[in-house]
C-alpha cells in the first residue's frame, strides 16, 4: 500500500471524524475537544531520557517529543495543546488503559505481552541494544568483547535481562536509572553501559559528555518503538500510523533523528526508517 496516500487520507478525515472519536474516547481531555481547537491532548513521554524525552524546566526535547508533537499536529492539536505526562516504564499500560493519556511515546518497545494490554501504532523507530563506552576505549567492540569487563544497566530492564542471559558470567552493576550508569562509566567504575542505542546516543549527545563517550554501534537486539494507545482503538491507531508515515516521508523524521541523536555521530541501524505495521 502507498503509505503516503493512506496518511493523506487519514489527515483529511482526521479533523472531522477523528477528533470526535477522540472526544468520545473517555479520556480526560474534556468534551470540548470535538471542535479540534479548544481541547488538549495528553501524551505520555519519558522526562529523564536525553535525546528521547527530556524535561528541562518547562521545555521538552527529544525524538519521542518530536514524534509526539508531529503526530498530535496531524490529529489536530497544535504544539501548545499538548500536555506531556511523565510515563515511567512500569506505568505505561496503566496510564493508557485508565485514559490518563491518549498516547504513549516513550521508548516503548512493541512486544506480545504488551499487545495484550494496549495497541501499538508503528514502529516509528527501530532501535537495538548496544554498548556505550568511553571515547578512548578501543577494546570493547561488541557483545563478545565484554569478558572481564564491568557492565552497567538498569535494574530489571530488558537490556539487563538480555546480557544476563546471553553472557552467563557477566559482571553487571545495575542501577535505578541510566544517568547513574553514565556517571559510573565516566568515573571508570564500569567499562560499558548497555541498553537501546537510542538512549545511549542521547547520553553521548549531551553537552557535558561530548567527546567523552561513544556508542559502539554493534546492536545485538531489535527493539521496535511504537506509539501506545488504548487497546482496540483501531481508528486512532490508523490515524497515528498515518502520521508516522507522513513524518517519515516528508523528511521530518530524518530531521528529528539527526537533531536529537546525531550530535555524537549516531546513525540509525538497519531497518530505519521503518514501515509502520498495519493496525489490527
Amino acid at each position: 500500500m502507498n503509505a503516503r496516500r493512506i496518511g493523506a487520507a487519514v489527515v483529511a478525515t482526521g479533523l472531522a471524524v477523528g477528533l470526535a472519536a477522540c472526544g468520545g474516547g473517555g479520556s480526560s481531555t474534556g468534551s470540548g475537544s470535538g471542535s479540534g481547537s479548544g481541547g488538549t491532548i495528553k501524551i505520555g513521554i519519558k522526562f529523564d531520557q536525553p535525546g528521547l524525552g527530556l524535561k528541562e524546566g518547562d521545555k521538552y526535547t527529544g525524538l519521542d517529543v518530536d514524534v509526539a508533537t508531529y503526530v498530535a499536529k496531524k490529529l489536530g492539536y497544535a504544539a501548545d495543546k499538548i500536555q506531556f505526562v511523565q510515563s515511567p516504564s512500569a506505568q505505561r499500560e496503566t496510564l493508557i488503559s485508565t485514559g490518563q493519556v491518549k498516547l504513549v511515546v516513550a521508548t516503548y518497545s512493541i512486544t506480545d505481552a504488551r499487545k495484550e494490554k494496549v495497541s501499538f501504532a508503528g514502529p516509528y523507530f527501530i532501535a537495538g541494544q548496544d554498548l556505550l563506552v568511553r571515547a578512548d576505549d578501543t577494546a570493547i567492540t561488541g557483545k563478545d568483547s565484554l569478558k572481564g569487563k564491568k557492565l552497567c544497566s538498569v535494574t530489571g530492564s530488558t537490556s539487563a535481562q538480555k546480557v544476563k542471559k546471553d553472557i552467563p558470567d557477566v559482571n553487571l552493576q545495575e542501577f535505578g536509572t541510566y544517568s547513574e550508569c553514565v556517571a559510573a562509566l565516566v568515573s571508570k567504575g564500569v567499562d560499558a553501559l548497555t541498553t537501546d542505542n537510542t538512549i545511549l546516543a542521547g547520553y553521548a549527545s549531551q553537552a557535558q559528555y561530548k567527546g567523552k563517550l561513544k556508542v559502539v554501534g554493534a546492536p545485538f537486539s531489535t527493539e521496535n518503538y511504537g506509539i501506545g494507545l488504548k487497546k482496540g482503538d483501531t481508528a486512532l491507531c490508523q490515524k497515528v500510523t498515518g502520521a508516522i508515515t507522513a513524518m517519515i516521508s516528508d523528511g521530518s523524521w530524518q530531521k528529528a533523528v539527526d537533531t536529537n541523536l546525531g550530535p555524537a555521530g549516531f546513525k540509525p541501524g538497519p531497518g530505519n526508517p521503518p514501515t509502520p505495521a498495519a493496525c489490527s
Binding site: S89, A90, Q91, R92, E93, T94, T111, A113, R114, E116, K117, V118, T155, G156, S157, T158, Q161, L172, Q173, E174, F175, G176
Partner: peptide, 24 residues
C-alpha cells in the same frame, strides 16, 4: 537496594513489570 542492582523482591518486580507490562 534494587537501585544498586540487588536481586531482591523489588528488583524482580521491576523485571516482571518490564516483561509482562505493569499491572495492578
Amino acid at each position: 537496594a534494587a537501585a544498586i542492582g540487588v536481586a531482591d523482591a523489588a528488583g524482580l518486580m521491576k523485571t516482571i513489570s518490564e516483561n509482562e507490562t505493569g499491572t495492578l
